[in-house]
């Protein structure tokens, strides 16, 4: 398996359970060493220095049960070489940002699960990392908090952070990611920008509702196959044909178009097809 993550973008690391996502991530953050091959971050081999520039939110995560929130966060920050004064500033900022300021002196046992999740997220970003690795970051959050966290992630992206986002929830991935890789059984199945992946997935389908233009639709160089539904048609474009060309030709031929839509396969479809077929 080989892939690249481009700086300043959100990279979706997708795959079914047990595909090897967590294992791969553990190698990137330096928890385990690869048997073979190599990993480079920010143009250098992974090391203790690169570790300090990563914020890692593991899928299985927790906090010290009987320790004050602020003390835990200070400890995690210190382990990333953040000075205490700097850490205190950022802890206050982030607790405020997450609306958890009044919980600063409370213990983990007093927090709800969603609150703990947010605290764990704070511990991931406290040292202002250049690369964020989020493994199923939204599991256990209610929809309102999921939306909130998505906005926080988008903010971080806008600040130029690179984000590796691992999940098996395709809807979220589709909303957040610029690039994706799909792996299964520790092999890369498909990868690239979201657009490329969808484009390369082959099914260039178009939903069309129009009156006239039949001659265009019969051109085998443009349309490979036509399926008629109740009031609209589903066209499969011919190889090398372009949807814009088709649209132009239809208009030139005087067709009255009420709907013309490129149907993209959803990540969910791709996931099911690719993973299910192996």
């Amino acid at each position: 398996m080989s892939f690249e993550v481009r700086a300043g973008r959100v990279f979706g690391f997708l795959g079914p359970n047990g595909a090897g996502k967590t294992t791969t991530i553990r190698m990137i953050v330096g928890i385990t060493a690869p048997d073979d091959g190599q990993i480079e971050l920010f143009g250098e081999r992974i090391s203790n220095e690169t570790q300090n520039r990563i914020g890692y939110l593991p899928e299985e995560r927790g906090l010290y049960k009987k320790m004050k929130i602020v003390d835990q966060l200070r400890y995690f920050a210190a382990l990333k070489n953040v000075s205490q004064t700097e850490a205190d500033k950022r802890i206050d900022f982030w607790l405020e940002r997450m609306n958890l300021a009044e919980w600063k002196k409370k213990k983990t046992t007093d927090l709800s699960k969603g609150m703990s999740q947010k605290i764990q997220f704070i511990s991931t970003v406290l040292h202002n990392p250049d690369l964020l690795i989020l493994d199923e970051p939204f599991s256990g959050l209610d929809p309102v908090n999921v939306e909130f966290m998505i906005s926080v992630v988008a903010e971080l992206k806008a600040q130029g952070k690179t984000i590796i986002f691992s999940t098996h929830l395709m809807e979220t991935a589709e909303r957040l990611c610029d690039d994706i890789i799909l792996i299964n059984k520790s092999r890369k199945v498909i990868g690239g920008t979201l657009r490329e992946v969808k484009g390369s997935f082959g099914k260039n389908l178009i939903a069309l509702r129009c009156v006239g233009g039949e001659t265009v639709l019969e051109d085998k160089n443009l349309v490979a196959k036509t399926t008629t539904h109740s009031d609209e048609m589903e066209l499969e474009l011919a190889v090398n044909a372009d949807a814009q060309d088709l649209l132009k030709r239809l208009i030139e031929n005087g067709a009255a178009i009420s709907k013309f839509e490129e149907i993209e396969p959803s990540l969910n479809d791709i996931f099911i097809e690719k993973v299910g077929s192996i």
Binding site: G30, Y56, P58, E60, R61, L63, F76
Partner: peptide, 14 residues
């Protein structure tokens, strides 16, 4: 405790 709560994973990445 660190093992049970999975804090180890965060610690080991630091």
């Amino acid at each position: 405790e660190e093992k049970e709560t999975r804090i180890a994973e965060i610690l080991f990445s630091s």
